[in-house]
């Protein structure tokens, strides 16, 4: 029998620390879930029974230990670090996209200043706080951005663009670090 080994999306480019901001790659499963028509209630019930979580509303992140369930787009929610049950698949389209993304956590006191250089989103704490998730852009890339802590965000872009993500974040982090040094 052959043996396949796994490589991460960012390969050796992460982790990274520039100034007071760090970027680390996250290894996690990722499933997209979209309820079939008229099956939302059943799907929500399964999620509640299975994981004790409410179905996340628009921009919401629900977490239970290491399991995250978050709003993803107009049709989907996403499971991170948790596998949707077989039962859920009776009421919803479940798609495994665990390998489709480069998923990183970016953290540090200046993290919002770094993000303000790569995304048009309003990243002020009062607009984008812990437990919120949004879809937008990181530079030219479609991205999912989630606030996990006061100064910690999770960013997902397509896997093939991992090097570009690291490149774009590096430039923003260097700029913020240089400004802080200047002051």
């Amino acid at each position: 029998m052959v043996e396949l080994y796994a490589t991460s999306a960012s390969e050796a480019a992460l982790p990274l620390k520039i100034g007071g901001v760090s970027v680390a790659e996250v290894a996690t499963s990722l499933f997209l879930v979209a309820p079939f028509k008229g099956k939302f209630t059943q799907a929500a019930t399964v999620l509640n029974t299975q994981m004790g979580l409410e179905w996340p509303a628009v921009h919401e992140l629900k977490r239970m230990g290491g399991a995250y369930v978050l709003w993803f787009d107009h049709a989907h929610i996403a499971f991170m670090g948790a596998e949707p049950s077989v039962e859920l698949a009776r009421y919803a389209a479940v798609t495994d996209v665990s390998d489709a993304c480069c998923i990183i956590d970016i953290s540090g006191v200046s993290v919002r200043n770094v993000l303000a250089r790569v995304t048009p989103l309003d990243v002020r704490a009062k607009s984008f706080n812990i437990g919120m998730t949004q879809r937008s852009m990181v530079m030219h890339m479609q991205a999912s951005i989630t606030c996990l802590g006061k100064s910690k965000f999770r960013v997902m872009v397509f896997r093939s663009m991992a090097r570009t993500l690291v490149h774009d974040l590096t430039i923003a982090m260097e700029s913020v670090a240089a400004r802080e040094k200047k002051v």
């Binding site: 049709a75 489709a100 896997r159 093939s160």
Partner: peptide
């Protein structure tokens, strides 16, 4: 009653 998503990058 259909939903779809890109899996280009997963595979």
């Amino acid at each position: 009653d259909v939903s779809f998503t890109s899996v280009t990058e997963h595979w």
